[in-house]
Structures are given as C-alpha cells and as structure tokens.
Design a protein around this nucleic acid. Structure first.
Length: 424
RNA sequence: GGAGGGCUGGCCGAGUGGUUGAAGGCGGCGGUCUUGAAAACCGCUAGGGAGGUACCCACUCCUUCCUCAUGGGUUCGAAUCCCAUGCCCUCCGCCA
C-alpha cells in the first residue's frame, strides 16, 4: 500500500509511476475522489455517534417517565447512527480496495518500460572457454544425469512436469550451496530462520503477491492457506502488527525454505532441466530498516549477492529491472543473471527488491519516531542468496571435457569434494 | 476428531449492561531529595482514524470516532449478554 499522503500531496508523482509501469493512471483520481467522499461519511457518522453517546448519558441519569421519553427519542437516533456507520464502512472499504490496488511508487532512476527495457549495470567475470575436445557445451541436465545428480524423468513420474529429484552428489551440492549461503549470511549479521511455507491470506496479500501475479501462487482451498513462493512472505509476516526498535540498525534475517510456484503462463518455456520448476529451495535475505536507509540497504543486499556469485565462480551481470517488471511491492529491483553457456544467455539467479514502506504499511510493521509521539512504517527489503537454480550455472560453467565438474573452492568445505565425477 | 478452560494496555491483573479507554501493580520516562547512586515520595506513561488550529510541512494544542482475540447479533446504551470463527492451555481418542 502506498502512502496516502504522497498520493494527496503529489498525485502527479503517482501517475508518473503508473505510466512508467505501463499501468492505468486514472486509478489515482478514483482514489482521490473516494477519499473525499469517505471522509465526509466518517464525519457524519462521528457527529451522530457523539450525539448518541452524550444522550445515552442523560438516559442513564434519568428516572421514570422522563427516562421513557428520552428512550423513545434516542431510539430513532440509533437508527440514523447505524445507517451512517454502514455508509461510512462501505465507502471506506471501496477506498481501501482502490488504494491497495496501486503498486508501489517506483524509485527515481528506474528505467521505464517492460521486461526487455532493463539496464545492464555491470558485467562481472569472463565467459568460460569451451573445454578442449568438446564440440558444444553440455547443458546442466545432461551433466546432471551423467553425474547421477538430477533425475527429472522420475520427478515427472512422481509429481508431474517441472518436478525433479536431486540425487547423490546433486543433493549434496544443493545442501552445500545453501549451507554456504547461510554461513555467509550469519557472518554478515543475519539471523538464520527456517520459515513456514504455508501462510494465511492476509500475510500473502500483505506482501503483495495476490495482485497481478496471483495466478503464480498455490492455494489450499480447504484450509484457506497459501504455499509461499519465497520465504520473503513468512519473514515479512514475522513482525506484522509489531512496533520494532531499529535504533541499533536494520533487523536482518536469512530465511531457508522450500519455494512453490505454479509457473502459470510459462507453458513451453524452460521445460528442460531444473531452470524453471514448481518447487525449489532458497536462502533469502530480508531486512527491516528505516525508510531513509532503504536505498543504502538495497545496495548492501546486492553486494552480498555479488559476493555469493563470486564465491561460486560464475560470470554474471547485474541489471536494473524496468518499472513494468517490478512486481507490485517493489520500488526498485536489481537482478543478478548468471551466464549459462549451453544457452549462450544470462539467466536470473538473484533478485533484490526495495519495497520501501509498501509491505510494512499493509502488514502493520512500524517503529517509534524518536522525538515526539507516534510511529511510522518501516521499510522492507529482500534479496536472494542461493537457490536450486544456481546448480545450473555451477554445473555448466565448471564442466570439464571428460564430463566431470570442478567444485568451486568456497563450496569444497561444505561438499567434501573437489570434483564431481560421472557415474557408471 | 471429542470434552472442558481461557484470550483485557509493554507485562501482570481488576472489572458481569450506563460518565470504564478501562482500577491496582510491575516496567518505562520525568522530577524532588542526595556528593553520586539506591531507597522513598510526586507526576506522566496504549494504538489507530477523521476534523479543526498553523505561513507550507511537522510538532504542539483542541474536538471527535474506533479498538478489551476477530466477525456478527441483542440493546436507547456492550469489555460486560448471545452466536460464529481464530488462537492458547488441559484431558481423551487417533496418527506419527
């Protein structure tokens, strides 16, 4: 939810943000109109309610005939109060729905446009040379099958398309990667968390995932719960309806969880291997910080992501995602995309979003204002530290002519192997 | 799944229809006293919304509404009565 004050004081800024996202600016004027009508209705209700209360006190004091007369009088007033309250509530709900439908106002500097209008901020690391003796790069699935690491055929047999088993060194490699991520997060001051992956509707809605991308989310109709696509959801909800003390700096968490995504609308895309799957694991950074510190914290999270990518020794580039590709909660998003040799393309491995106060406003996460009374919403940010998809980049970039895969030095202590060898 | 008990402010805990947004205590903040501290004593101390006041914003101030788990209902009037839901606790059953 965006800041109503911003909408009132500078509606043009919100319209401009909507345009940059390629969305409708008219909703701004609809909200402003509803705001005026809502406030009038509230005033009317409050006026009547105050009258009812003060007359009620007279009733309490009165006795006998006098009391009967007052009762008849105040009975009629009670009806008007109910009607005014209903009006006010209806307008309030309409206003609220309209306000919530507006995605976060994009940060200055975000490139306008859609998915393909990103700006490349930097490219890091040289693309690997095709190992001598190979005519073409083996892709991660071919490598994974030869290593006895990935089994998509049985994944499909058991659970359907876009499911897989990680087997043997594949399972070990994923655990090593995620453990490396957790240990680096801990070293950087993050509190590790293992989070619920089923959450209530208000938490899912609070993080903004039930907006335009609701079709991506698995829902358990019977239990009125949602399966999370990232531990960001549970971590954002962790401090909901709380007042945090951020005077000592941001609260930083590193969530470990399975992630579930329906991948609706991506039929035929990335059907091979484990690039795009319905279930995977992820270590996610999450920060609660003061709004004025959010942009700096965002760069910090990006820095941690780059450190992790350096640790697994894959070439990558950093992009500044265009406004239309941000998702409703984010004001800005940086993605790190790793080089995938078999595709000759960069593929997203990490994504860090600055959600400013958008999620906190919906979830009721605040801090005390130092001088003077009152509270204000905090800022929330998230970023990826490792996911199952990273195995794709690791396997492909470190493949050797004989089908073996070199293990990056940083992973070796967690894996206990220097090279992954083909089986059989 | 069945049977009970409970859910009040940062915490504990009174309150069973009418000036109760809520006694009392703890904690916190400020003050008096003291060389300093402690103790003692005094005062203050929930969150949110709307309107007004103001040179814009903010603060202060004023008015007012909402919130005693949540949502409905009864009533002129609900923390207090009724219904539903959620959560916590105890016991039984079931599963692991």
């Amino acid at each position: 939810m965006i800041d109503l004050r911003v909408l009132r004081d500078d509606p043009e800024a919100v319209r401009a943000s909507q345009r940059a996202r390629g969305e409708d600016g008219a909703v701004v004027d609809r909200v402003l109109d509803l705001d005026v009508r809502r406030r009038a209705a509230i005033s009317e209700f409050e006026r009547l309610r105050a009258e009812q209360k003060s007359r009620g006190k007279d009733v309490a004091k009165a006795k006998g005939e006098e009391k009967q007369a007052l009762l008849a009088d105040v009975k009629e007033l009670s009806e008007r109060v109910k009607a005014a309250e209903a009006d006010s509530a209806a307008l309030g709900a309409e206003f609220d729905a309209a306000l919530r439908s507006i995605p976060n106002v994009v940060e200055d500097g975000v490139p306008p446009g859609g998915e393909d209008d990103y700006v490349v901020l930097e490219e890091v690391g040289a693309h690997p040379q095709l190992p001598e003796g190979l005519d073409a790069w083996r892709d991660h699935l071919e490598l994974g099958e030869a290593l006895g690491a990935i089994d998509t055929a049985r994944g499909a047999k058991v659970s359907g398309s876009r499911f897989y088993f990680l087997t043997g060194v594949g399972a070990r490699l994923e655990l090593a990667l995620l453990n490396l991520a957790v240990s680096r997060a801990v070293a950087a001051g993050f509190t590790p968390m293992i989070t619920p992956t089923l959450v209530k509707p208000e938490v899912m809605a609070g993080t903004g995932f039930l907006g335009a991308h609701a079709a991506e989310v698995y829902k358990l109709e019977e239990d009125d719960l949602y399966l999370t696509g990232t531990s960001e959801v549970a971590l954002a909800g962790y401090h909901s309806d709380e007042i945090l003390d951020l005077s000592a700096g941001p609260r930083r968490y590193a969530g470990w969880s399975a992630c579930y995504r329906r991948e609706a609308g991506s039929y035929g895309k990335d059907t091979r291997g484990i690039i795009r799957v319905h279930q995977f694991h992820k270590v996610e950074m999450f920060s609660f910080c003061r709004p004025e510190d959010a942009a700096a914290e965002h760069r910090r999270l990006l820095g941690f992501e780059k450190d992790m990518l350096a640790a697994v020794e894959v070439p990558y580039r950093v992009i500044d995602t265009a406004a239309g590709d941000l998702g409703s909660s984010a004001a800005r998003k940086f993605d790190c995309e790793a080089w995938v040799p078999s595709q000759g393309a960069y593929r997203e491995l990490t994504s860090t979003s600055n959600c400013t106060t958008f999620q906190a406003r919906r979830l009721g996460i605040r801090e005390r204002v130092e001088d003077g009374a009152g509270t204000r919403p905090v800022a929330t940010l998230n970023g990826t530290l490792a996911t199952t998809r990273w195995l794709v980049a690791i396997l492909e970039n470190h493949q050797q002519a004989d089908g073996s895969v070199r293990v990056p030095a940083a992973l070796q202590p967690f894996l206990g192997l220097e090279v992954l060898q083909p089986v059989g």
